[in-house]
Design a protein around this nucleic acid. Structure first.
Length: 633
DNA sequence: CAAAGCACTC
């Protein structure tokens, strides 16, 4: 790797054992001057070690005051993340030029030290140094919308707006500030569109969920690099279109563009959303065999993917193998344990994290409170809630209250939960009310449910979940007038009930089912399997929980409607299309219904199969007739 | 006599 340096015939350098191997003494006489050679060495240095040696040489040759070399050295230090060395070199310079200032600003902006970058910019102006296009393209990265607008004016006055780099920076400023129209206007008035400016525009749309617009610009972009693909793939992955993200990823591979760390992070996120474990494993091996760095992002993305795809074991393996675990990595592991119902492991991981000196943040407490709520740990829940406020000085957000309300109300302390909602200093949202309503159904508190529902409808806060839960509550008590009332309300309010949908991955393809679905090519075999299951259930004297059916039907019809629930179709398909003894993994978009939960337990007993089911809230691992949630969900 | 803009995990 030191070939380029060897061929450059460098001057003699300080002779340490190390430098001898890296930068051998000159054997030929080049007719370049010493500063030029050193400049070449700095530009081609491959490691911080090289750079330190070159710096030493500079000092030996008395060239450290050389303006250009000083500048180059400053830039190189920051490229290795050595911001302090870069600042120290800047301070050595008694008469910094716009070059030095720009480098300093760029270094801070690049490493995300935005406040400091802005301070240096102001300081530079105060020293009477006029910024140029390079300075603007660097500082704009650190600007929030308002100061970005001020700098836009400034750039216009200095006649720098025609510069393509400045323009792109401005597009990015408006994009980050959510002023999409302004960003587009700037983009449209650019003299020429570079790949980077096109990508900035795609990013702007993608970040705000305007995927059609993003795709239109993406399709206009002919020569795409890895960043351009990444932006579009991530746009899909982050806005509820994981399938589209995966399709695009395959196209990227087909186009011969090599995925990098950023690509796999987005793709793994898509796999996690879909529960596509096979594809996720493939990405994991692709990472290993293609030299993609296992940084904190990639490691965490793998932990999340494995835990969302139901393989907690693999998530733990990856987590243990990670060298540098930041707070996000710890949070992901804690949440992984939480959604799988392993509360004690979640609590243990939290302690380990604190012991190792990693400070928990607001997300950590969402994860740990989720763990408590999934197993009804009321005392621990309150302890963590208070620890967060008192020791870590973190203001509880709506999500933290949501966890507490969930924990209390589901464990039976409905009044206490209701009290907390009324007392909290922030406005309760639809999720909080929905949680309370859900608990009302669980504990058959019709009166309280009606009170809450009335309140929600009156405030126009009711969503399809509100109506469904209320309708559930009436149906469970056989109050069909109530059910009808809700249905009328639902129609008049225009909300649409979200359809239950279950999916299963077989041979790298995700198969989706809705209730009563007959669209699948193997539909006939699936329904034959269902009949077989029903025959088994009869021998176990299983009685369908018809009181969960929301419609006023006869008993037989109710049973039939339960038999074709989407999760059951997915399981039946899994049974006929995977090898005996293998685990079946199902992903459902809503919560699993209690009849299906009971039936799945029996299926796991009868077939000897492990069935892992992810519902909207958590995982259920069905083994030999029982479920990991202990029927508490 | 030197330099720049777009992407990622809970």
């Amino acid at each position: 790797m030191s070939m380029s340096i060897v061929s450059a015939a460098p001057p003699p350098l300080p002779t340490t054992a190390k430098s001898a191997s890296v930068v051998p003494p000159a054997t030929t006489t080049a007719n370049t001057t010493q500063p030029q050679r050193l400049a070449f060495l700095i530009d081609n240095s491959r490691s911080l070690d090289h750079l330190l040696q070159i710096h030493a040489a500079l000092l030996r040759h008395g060239l450290h005051h050389h303006r250009i070399l000083n500048f180059k050295l400053q830039r190189s230090y920051s490229s290795y993340g050595r911001l302090r060395s870069s600042v120290a070199l800047f301070n050595c310079n008694s008469n910094p030029t716009v070059f030095n200032w720009t480098a300093l600003i760029h270094d801070h902006a690049h490493l995300g030290v935005h406040q400091q970058a802005l301070l240096y910019f102001v300081q530079m102006m105060g020293d009477g140094i006029e910024p140029n296009a390079f300075t603007f393209s660097s500082i704009l990265k650190s600007c929030p919308l308002e100061s970005g607008k001020a700098l836009h004016c400034h750039a216009v006055k200095l006649g720098l707006c025609s510069d393509s780099y400045v323009r792109t920076g401005l597009v990015d400023v408006y994009a980050r500030g959510g002023e999409i129209v302004s960003a587009r206007r700037l983009f449209d008035s650019m003299p020429e569109r570079s790949l980077v400016s096109l990508t900035a525009m795609i990013t702007c749309y993608a970040k705000h969920g305007e995927l059609k617009e993003a795709r239109a610009v993406f399709d206009e972009t002919l020569e795409r690099d890895v960043v351009c693909w990444n932006v579009m793939i991530d746009g899909y992955a982050q806005h509820g279109k994981p399938n589209e993200a995966l399709v695009l990823f395959r196209q990227m591979l087909g186009a011969g563009v090599r995925p990098n760390e950023v690509t796999v992070v987005s793709v793994l996120s898509a796999c996690g959303q879909l529960g596509a474990l096979e594809l996720g494993r493939w990405i994991h091996s692709h990472i290993k065999s293609n030299g993609i760095q296992m940084n904190a992002y990639v490691g965490t993305a793998l932990v999340v993917m494995y835990s969302k795809c139901g393989s907690l074991e693999d998530a733990i393996l990856v987590f243990k193998s990670m060298n540098h675990k930041d707070v996000v990595a710890w949070n992901s592991m804690i949440l992984g344990f939480a959604i799988h119902g392993s509360s004690q492991c979640a609590l243990g991981t939290f302690s380990a994290m604190c012991r190792l000196g990693v400070n928990p943040n607001d997300i950590t407490f969402i994860a740990i409170l989720t763990a408590c709520s999934h197993t009804g740990l009321i005392k621990e829940g309150w302890d963590f809630f208070n620890l967060m406020k008192d020791k870590y000085r973190i203001q509880p957000k709506i999500e933290h209250y949501g966890c507490m309300v969930n924990l209390l109300s589901r464990a039976g302390s409905l009044e206490e939960a209701y009290q907390l909602v009324k007392e909290m200093e922030i406005q309760p949202d639809a999720v909080i009310w929905g949680t309370l309503l859900g608990a009302c159904r669980l504990h058959a508190k019709t009166a309280l449910a009606e009170e809450i529902a009335e309140f929600l409808v009156g405030k126009d806060l009711a969503n399809c979940g509100t109506y469904t839960l209320l309708s559930n509550i009436y149906a469970a008590s056989g109050d069909w007038d109530g059910v009808a009332k809700v249905r009328t309300l639902m129609k008049s309010s225009g909300v649409i009930k979200e359809k239950g949908c279950s999916s299963i991955e077989v041979n790298n393809r995700v198969h989706e089912f809705v209730a009563g679905d007959k669209r699948h090519p193997k539909s006939r075999e699936i329904y034959l399997m269902l009949e077989e299951i029903n025959a088994w259930l009869k021998t176990y004297n299983y009685r369908a929980q018809t009181d969960t059916v929301l419609h006023d039907l006869g008993e037989e019809q109710k049973e039939q409607s339960l038999e074709v629930h989407s999760e059951r179709l997915a399981i039946a398909f899994g049974l006929i299309s995977t090898e005996a003894g293998t685990t079946i993994r199902i992903v459902k978009n809503l919560r699993v219904c209690s009849d299906c939960h009971a039936v799945t337990k029996l299926i796991s007993l009868m077939t000897g199969r492990k069935i892992v089911m992810r519902d909207r809230n958590r995982f259920h691992h069905f083994v030999k007739g029982s479920c990991s949630c202990g029927d508490y969900w």
